[in-house]
Amino acid sequence: MSADGNNYAQLLAACGRGDRSALRVIYDGEARKMIGVAMRILKRRELAEEIVHDAFVQIWRFSSRYDPGLGSARAWMFAIVRNRAINALRDGARETSAPDDEINSAMDRESGTENAFDRLAEGSALKRCLEQLDAKRRFAVLLAYVEGLSHGEIAARLNVPLGTCKSWITRSLAQLRECLA
């Protein structure tokens, strides 16, 4: 169950049976957030919308592949969006279109990496565990997840050698794993 009461696992099962109204319920519940997630990675509204379009087509076609034994339906759907957005980013999609400066600055203020940590629900396991990380290392992990940056891009952003960046992230993951277990 998601916070707004939708049972996405059941809705995906309905999609698998060809029920289009189920996809519309998912769309109404999550499309705007999905665009937000893709925007943080691609920084271009048009690209973000395209990613969400493709993600919904993928969700529809492969809804029967969702395996409830492997996490929530919501995380599965958002992973599709993030994967597509990161692939597009690595393929250089961001360089080929003009930036949305206005949206970007609004995004940066509200939901950029800087704020991603603060905005996590108090008491959530992830927040509690991220809190235990050194601020710079935590930021490195968040840059990867929130903006989809590669090791090299994170190293450049934080002005540290690539090796340092890699070991920060590996150690942070080890600490997180211990804490989240």
């Binding site: 916070a3 499309a31 705007r32 957030k33 665009i35 937000g36 997630v37 925007m39 943080r40 509204r45 973000a48 919308e49 969400v52 996490g71 929530s72 919501r74 995380a75 599965w76 958002f78 992973a79 993030r82 949206i103 995004m107 509200e110 939901s111 991603a116 905005r119 996590l120 629900a121 959530s124 396991a125 992830l126 927040k127 968040l142 997840y145 929130v146 997180l176 989240l180």
Partner: peptide
């Protein structure tokens, strides 16, 4: 994926 998806839950929605 499940743990990190908490970050997606708090993203600012953008009108489609």
């Amino acid at each position: 994926r499940e743990h990190f998806s908490a970050i997606d839950a708090n993203v600012t929605p953008i009108e489609a």
